[in-house]
Structure formats: structure tokens, C-alpha cells
């Protein structure tokens, strides 16, 4: 019955590691469906991770930190929107700039606020994001040994920070927004054919601004889901590359929220497997194990995905008065 235990632990780790990626890749979904390529997710995630950890530390309130993290990501996204939408910048170039500014600013401010240290001071456990369903199954009293194992496994699956549940709620929310509301239809139409949307009276610029800023807010939340839930502070190497992985998950998920979620879960599962195997007495180099998530992602992309096509007008600047 060890397998139940292992499974519970792997699923638990998977959920924990996937959550920050899910926020961020939902951000990517929103922005790119509106036709704005967002390579800057990494930088927005980093500034969110810093802002969340710093505010939570100084106010002792993780939720306030979480919200400010979203705002910080949104502020950086506003820059991206100004460049890409108003000044018809090359989206990739602007995104690269955001990826220098975000992490640079985060570490600069960390050093200013924490006496030159390259990390924020850790939150104590009581002041991290809570785990609402922690031990919820423990109240069930069972005597059957198999059932005890199942309850234990369920406990380790649901022993999650609130940010994990919010991530999955947001997958639904973004899906609903994109496919069931007027705003969502406008976002998608702007990404597919901005001129057609414009002739039908959609304010293309406004919609693009909205989508890009929302995308930054989500990426910022994703960063905080890392810095004030998965671990308890921000440090320079915390986000290294996760924004890009979220971007990859989004392309993997063919620019759809539920698809992006599966991409993140896949990556998280590979990560969970690695963490789990690292804890067993398996004699494999940890460096080789660490390669697994990346290689699995590549193989799956080769076998199952095929040509990925994004929104038709993705990455193209739009100017109203040009035909």
C-alpha cells in the first residue's frame, strides 16, 4: 500500500509546483489572445514575487502581499501595453526589456530595503498564505488499514496553500471570461482580426490594454504564489525561468486556459516526480533527475502537439488609421 502514499505525495507536490505556473500562463493566455505577445511574463512574475514577499513581511499580512504582488505585476504590464499598443513596439523586444527591468528592480529594492541582502527576510509560518483544507480528512475516523492509507493520501493531496485552489478557480474564471462573456469575445476578436473588430465598434486599444494589464496581474500573483506560499521569501534565483516555462505551457495548451493548465500540471508532475524520487534511496544522479521535466516536455511536444498556431494577429502592432 506504499503506492498510495507515494501517489499522494507526488500529486501534492505537483499541485504545489504547478500553481505559480498556472497563474502566469493564464496571464499569457489573456494577453496573447488579445494579440500581444508577452515574453515579459518572467519579469512580471519576479516583481510580483518580490512585492508579495516584501509587503507580507512588513505588514505581516500575506493576503495584502498577494494583492500588492498582483498590482506590481500589473504596473509592469502597463509599461508593456504602452509600448506595444500605443507605440506599436515590437512585442518581443519590449518583453525582453521587461525581463531586465522586473528582476533588476526587484533585486535593487530588496537590497535597499533589507540592508544589502540579496533576499527578503523570511515570513514566519503563521504569516504565510494559509492552508484552508489542511487535515480536513483527519476528522474522519476509520479503522480499516486500507482506508487509513487512503485518508492519509487524501490529506497530503489537499494539504495545499490557498493559492493553489485560487489558481484552479482562476482557470475556470479565465475560461468563462474568454468564451462566455462579451469582453472575452472582444479580446479574442482583437487578437484574431483587430481591423474587423474595430469596424464593429470594438475599442481595440482599450481591450488590448485591459488584457495585457490583467496578464501582468496574474503573473504577479503567480510570483507571489511562489514567494509567500511555496517558500517564504523572495531571492534572486527564485523565479529563474518559471515565467518562460509558463509561456511554454501556454503554447503547449494552444493558447487556451484549460490547455495551459494541463501544460503546467504536466510540468509540475514531472517536477513532483523528481522531488519524490530525490527523497527515496534511488541511486540516480540528482542532476540527471533534474533534466527530466524539460526532456519530458520536449518529447510530449514532439509526439502530441504538432504545429501550434496562436491567434492570427498575435504579435502584430495595430494602428487605427492604416490600411
Amino acid at each position: 500500500m506504499k503506492i498510495l502514499n507515494d501517489l499522494g505525495s507526488i500529486i501534492g507536490i505537483t499541485l504545489m509546483y504547478s500553481a505559480p505556473l498556472i497563474y502566469t500562463s493564464l496571464g499569457g493566455v489573456l494577453s496573447e489572445n488579445a494579440g500581444v505577445v508577452n515574453i515579459g511574463l518572467e519579469g512580471m512574475m519576479t516583481i510580483g514575487a518580490f512585492a508579495g514577499a516584501a509587503v507580507a513581511y512588513f505588514t505581516q499580512n500575506p493576503w495584502l502581499g498577494f494583492i500588492v504582488a498582483g498590482l506590481a505585476g500589473g504596473a509592469l504590464a502597463l509599461l508593456h501595453a504602452i509600448a506595444c499598443v500605443t507605440f506599436t513596439a515590437d512585442h518581443v523586444v519590449s518583453g525582453i526589456a521587461i525581463n531586465f527591468i522586473g528582476p533588476g528592480l526587484a533585486l535593487f529594492l530588496t537590497k535597499m530595503l533589507f540592508d544589502g541582502a540579496a533576499m527578503t527576510l523570511p515570513l514566519d509560518l503563521d504569516h504565510k498564505i494559509p492552508r484552508p483544507l489542511n487535515g480536513i480528512f483527519s476528522s474522519i475516523s476509520v479503522s480499516n488499514p486500507v482506508l487509513v492509507k487512503i485518508v492519509n493520501a487524501l490529506n497530503s493531496i489537499f494539504n495545499q496553500y490557498a493559492t493553489v485552489y485560487i489558481a484552479f478557480i482562476l482557470v475556470f474564471a479565465v475560461w468563462f471570461l474568454l468564451y462566455k462573456t462579451k469582453t472575452g469575445l472582444r479580446i479574442r476578436s482583437v487578437g484574431e482580426h483587430p481591423r474587423a473588430a474595430d469596424t464593429l465598434g470594438v475599442n481595440v486599444y482599450k481591450i488590448k490594454y485591459l488584457a495585457v494589464i490583467l496578464s501582468g496581474i496574474l503573473a504577479g500573483l503567480g510570483g507571489a504564489a511562489m514567494s509567500i506560499a511555496v517558500i517564504s521569501n523572495y531571492r534572486a534565483t527564485l523565479i529563474s525561468g518559471q515565467g518562460f516555462i509558463a509561456l511554454a505551457a501556454m503554447i503547449f495548451g494552444k493558447w487556451k486556459p484549460q490547455g495551459a493548465m494541463w501544460g503546467c500540471l504536466l510540468f509540475g508532475a514531472a517536477q513532483g516526480l523528481v522531488v519524490h524520487l530525490g527523497g527515496t534511496d534511488l541511486k540516480v544522479s540528482s542532476q540527471l533527475l533534474a533534466m527530466i521535466p524539460y526532456i519530458i516536455t520536449l518529447i510530449i511536444l514532439m509526439g502530441f502537439v504538432g504545429e501550434a498556431r496562436g491567434p492570427a494577429a498575435n504579435g502584430e502592432p495595430y494602428e487605427k488609421n492604416q490600411g
Binding site: 509599461l79 509600448a83 507605440f87 506599436t88 513596439a89 515590437d90 523586444v93 519590449s94 525582453i96 526589456a97 521587461i98 525581463n99 531586465f100 527591468i101 522586473g102 528582476p103 533588476g104 528592480l105 533585486l107 535593487f108 537590497k111 535597499m112 544589502g116
Partner: peptide, 24 residues
């Protein structure tokens, strides 16, 4: 002077940011 050297990353980011916007 104790200024964090990350100001350089910010500067480089801003340079690239403006390079992205020839229109501006």
C-alpha cells in the same frame, strides 16, 4: 557608495525598452 548594482540591469532594460519603440 553602497548603491545596488542592479541599477545597471534596470538601465539596460530601459534602453531596450526605448529601442522597442522607434515610434516614440
Amino acid at each position: 557608495i553602497g548603491a545596488p548594482m542592479e541599477v545597471i540591469n534596470i538601465t539596460i532594460g530601459v534602453i531596450v525598452f526605448f529601442i522597442a519603440m522607434p515610434k516614440l
